[in-house]
Design a protein around this nucleic acid. Structure first.
Length: 262
DNA sequence: ATGACGTATTCTATACGA
């Protein structure tokens, strides 16, 4: 049975409960992975989501920051959440579907402003986080798995509005791209979005600070859908719901979708 | 080059986002 999955950095699930419901009603993915819920798990507004058919949730949360959740119409089994780099943050959760597919939902650290770990501890934490994830996949090679989330790195030249201008901007520096590539390689992950849409500019995030985000279009592709190579050929139908960036009181991220025939 | 905006908590200021 094919299923459709979406990943969305929601930037407060409680403040944006209404647009989460709008997405669930209008697009009806089978599974929705959220990042930056900024809420303890027990304060996520599950009743509204449940009423729309999303009766299953696996989540990790904390007060104020971070937080990841997997909402689903399909039954889920909690497959754990790891505190990579021992930051004490809720940035990862995994769940397994009845078809045996495990979904990993990540919110990788943003990394601060200065791309130098000697002067900016957060940048080092971002690199260390990716290194720990890389080593975990190397030690235990995933199979039948999907990895989604806000990875906070736009790896390709056509994942950003201006490659040259962003080479020294956190999210597009060569060392971050290298760390992300090593993490991808260690799990034999296939970038499903770029498998489906191999060419051309593609973004999933636009800053709140632009006067007209749509007109300026200074975006970055920070949100990703990967799958292990054994199921990558089942992935198709990738798209970014750019319109959601223009909804009322939007997140600065747009949802990214993919469908898997499994 | 800078600053632009938005959210949550510590709440009329600060930390964080990228």
């Amino acid at each position: 049975m094919p299923f459709t999955l979406a990943t969305w950095n929601i930037n407060s699930v409680r403040l944006r409960e209404s647009i989460v419901c709008k997405l669930l009603e209008e697009e009806a993915p089978d599974v929705l992975c959220l990042q930056e819920c900024k809420s303890p798990v027990d304060k996520i507004p599950m009743d509204q989501f449940r009423a729309l058919g999303y009766t299953h949730m696996v989540a990790r949360g904390q007060k104020g920051y971070n937080g990841v959740a997997i909402l689903s119409k399909l039954p889920l089994v909690d497959a754990g959440g790891e505190d990579y780099a021992s930051l004490g943050h809720a940035r990862h959760v995994a769940a397994t579907l009845e078809n045996g597919v495990t979904i990993h939902n990540f919110y990788v650290p943003a990394g601060g402003d200065v791309p130098d770990r000697e002067v900016n501890e957060k940048f080092g934490q971002k690199l260390d986080y990716l290194t720990e994830v890389r080593d975990a996949f190397h030690a235990n090679r995933p199979e039948k798995s999907i990895l989604v989330g806000d990875l906070n790195i736009a790896p390709r030249e056509d994942d950003v509005w201006n490659h040259k201008n962003l080479l020294k901007i956190v999210s597009h520096t060569p060392i971050e791209v290298k760390h992300l590539a090593e993490t991808q390689e260690s799990g034999k992950w296939v970038d499903i979005t770029r498998q489906d849409i191999p060419e051309g500019l593609l973004y999933s995030w636009w800053s709140y600070r632009a006067k007209d985000w749509d007109e300026a279009d200074k975006g970055r592709r920070l949100d990703h859908v990967w799958a292990t190579s054994d199921i990558a050929n089942a992935g198709h139908g990738s798209r970014v719901l750019r319109a959601a960036r223009g909804w009322e009181k939007p997140s600065d991220h747009a949802p990214v979708f993919a469908t898997f025939d499994l």
